[in-house]
């Protein structure tokens, strides 16, 4: 992985986007097992309907895991200091999530050079599902 430096980045620079495959029932079942989120509302349509939903829907941590992968595709995980996101809408079956991010600030903290990234996970219609932020430490 080529090292990204803070000097080489400017506010407004965009990260290479990542588009994930369509979310299916299989995706949700496998992610339930892999993530440990066994809440049946995401995998059992009967439970989802009883809760007033029309169908099962994605665990919020699924698109956040995609965003995590998007970040670590860009910079090694060891440089990640903070990572957060707001779940702004439910991610549905059939959604194809695209992760995008851009540099919004260059800063220095505790002797480290950092960039603050604004992150978005949105579906194929452009509906934002997650709005996130990350602080990444970089070489000068």
């Amino acid at each position: 992985m080529s090292a990204i430096t803070q000097d080489s980045l400017n506010v407004g620079d965009e990260l290479p986007p990542l588009t994930m495959p369509e979310i299916t029932r299989t995706t949700l079942a496998l992610f339930a097992g892999a993530s440990g989120d066994h809440n049946p509302i995401h995998i059992d349509i009967d439970v989802a309907r009883k809760a007033g939903m029309t169908d099962v829907f994605a665990q919020g941590m699924l698109p956040m895991a995609y965003l995590g992968r998007f970040l670590t595709d860009w910079a090694p995980q060891a440089s990640l200091r903070q990572f957060s996101s707001r779940f702004t809408a439910i991610t549905d079956l059939g959604d194809r999530i695209t992760c995008t991010g851009k540099v919004v600030e260059k800063l220095e903290r505790d002797g480290e050079k950092l960039v603050r990234l604004e992150l978005t996970a949105a579906n194929q219609s452009g509906d934002t599902k997650l709005a996130g932020e990350a602080l990444v430490a970089l070489d000068a």
């Binding site: 009883k50 919020g60 990640l80 903070q82 707001r86 779940f87």
Partner: peptide, 29 residues
């Protein structure tokens, strides 16, 4: 979520699991 009682906190708080939504999640490393 490896907790054998992953929803213990909501039990203590008396919150119905069908009414909760994950609003925000943050990590520091």
């Amino acid at each position: 979520l490896e907790n054998p009682e992953p929803f213990k906190l909501f039990e203590i708080l008396g919150v119905d699991l069908n009414r909760i939504l994950h609003g925000e999640q943050a990590f520091s490393y």
